[in-house]
Design a protein around this nucleic acid. Structure first.
Lengths: 151, 151
DNA sequence: ACTATATATGTGTAAAATACACATATCATA
DNA sequence: TATGATATGTGTATTTTACACATATATAGT
């Protein structure tokens, strides 16, 4: 049943992105970061450098809103802005060392949860799951990219 | 590498919950639903009946905010409220047929993406992935529940 | 049973986030 | 060059949100 897989994915995601976990991250990292800035920082860290418009599309808010939020991230020293070398219109957001540190802190907590969950698994089960999930994520990403191109 | 699994999970989740997909859902379902109401409806549909406070904890907003949003979902006919049989303080949110329909529409689109991604997979790979993911999600859920009890 | 405390929900209100309208700068193309 | 498209940013009205407070029910201790 595909639906079973779907539910498992939703459950897992709910765990990783619950405010409880995000608060834990902020506490452990010693940072106070508005919840709305989290997804932006993560995307800049994992997929950056990236411009305001693309960022806005990905998080589903108006570009003007994201513009202000990115400015806030910059004032916090978590990112810097630089003109795109190919397109001078863009002022791409780039993660700073300090920002990267925070992104890693988030990833580390997530990893801890996953690691704990896999604690008693056999090595082969872990490997198998990793391979299959990577394959699934790649397929899903390309599916959405096609959709993006069509839209 | 656990990190590889983590990245795959994040990627997949990003695809399923991108505004692009959510907009597609609303368009296909013929419904206009504020983005903030999506996670509430999904949780009520998949984990309901559930009270305002627990819902607020899960989505990371103040209970007063969620109270108003739940009222909005009720006025839209997507949920109903009923007093908890064990605890009369709670006015649990229950999904309606109309709400369930919308939840299913969302799930259906998600399933479509996953299905497309698994299109060329062997049956045994699919089964294996589903089993492993369910196991992982269960472990992660119980991990977080322990954390919740401690907090 | 009674009191005190905790929990669930809801409302009033100020602060913050957001979208829309508009402005400017850069790019792409005829 | 001239024209339209795209990226970014700012002003402003609307909406969302959190905090303070109020009410109702539950739970524990006496």
């Amino acid at each position: 049943m595909i639906n079973d897989l779907h539910k498992a994915i939703l459950d897992l995601n709910g765990v990783l992105h619950s405010p409880r976990i995000e608060n834990q991250v902020m506490q452990q990292a010693g940072v106070e970061l508005d919840r709305a800035l989290f997804p932006l920082l993560l995307r800049i860290g994992m997929r950056g450098p990236i411009g305001v418009v693309k960022l806005a599309e990905q998080v589903g808010r108006d570009h003007s809103t994201v513009s202000r939020q990115v400015a806030k991230l910059e004032s916090l020293g978590l990112i810097t802005r630089q003109s795109g070398q190919a397109d001078q219109r863009m002022k791409e957001a780039c993660i700073t060392d300090s920002g990267q540190k925070l992104v890693r802190a988030i990833a580390h907590i997530h990893d801890g949860i996953v690691e704990k969950a896999l604690e008693h698994w056999s090595e082969s089960d872990r490997e198998q799951l990793t391979i299959l999930m990577r394959k699934l994520a790649d397929s899903a990403l390309s599916y959405v990219n096609i959709k993006i191109e069509q839209a």
